[in-house]
Amino acid sequence: MSDSPYFDPRHYGIDPHGPWPEDVPKGQDDSHWRYENDPKGARRAELRVAFCWSLTLLASIGLAWVYVAGGQTQVEGALWAMAFFGLGVGFILWARDLLPGTEVTASRGHHDVCAEEDRRAVAESLTRGIEPMARRPFLFKMLGAVGGVFGVAAVFPLASLGPRVHLDLDHTKWGVGTRAVTEDGNPVLPTDVAVNGILTVFPEGYITDALSPTLLINVGDLPFEIPPSREGWTINGLVAFSKICTHAGCPASLYNVQSHQLVCPCHQSTFDVLSDCKPVFGPAPRPLPQLPITTDIDGYVVSQSDYHEPVGPGFWDR
């Protein structure tokens, strides 16, 4: 047995010139396979593999045919799966039943770490360069300064990526007498919003501006609390609040008519419309800003000015 190539220490991670480690058994032989002594079983195993691969063959023909016929996602999925399963299971059965390789134990080597002499050698190699360098502290300081300045200069091109932060986070496209229009661009009469109704409006010409969408809400005759400084910001029962949630910027678009609350569908921040859209539940920290509105000469809804505070989520310099 010992002349078999499988007993070469090289196959067990063992140095052929060194001693045989105690924790690696001698005389292991992983040249055996499952049906080694059972020719009929081996033949059956071979047929099993062949069967699996025939499934792949059939599925492949099917895939080509389905593609030519115009493609059909469900059938394609089933056929792709069948093709891969057949191939894969066939490989695994081949390895399990017909190929050698029972478990064996080998050496890990010396934890794959080096001997102390090797470690000393590498430290010496490193020191060869470090020592003479350390004698020039001035150059090190110089290099640090130059590297820092060069590093800053080198990132300047990144500044081309976006505009410098201007004030457009503080402002929307609403201004003095800006007409409110619907999604389709039509101007809005105060009577377009029924009592308890809501309507999303945009500053005319800026329907896609992300910070400007505004909700017109008709609260009818209900008591509506607003600070004295905002007298005259409404058209009878018609009030306008920013649609952009002060939490994470989603559109706060669910209006509960019974409780007169606006709910943001993203994180369930809830705002009480009748008391100045103050947050009453959820993570939003601030009320939705109110837009002062009035009607223009044609009777359409317009803004009196921009919002008096930045809309949407907070930021450092808000």
Partner: peptide, 21 residues
């Protein structure tokens, strides 16, 4: 300091390939 299991060739190569499929 020892390791016990199946070898890459042929067991793991075929079985890992089969698993991928």
């Amino acid at each position: 300091t020892n390791i016990r299991g199946s070898r890459v060739w042929p067991q793991y190569a075929l079985k890992a390939g089969g698993l991928f499929m």
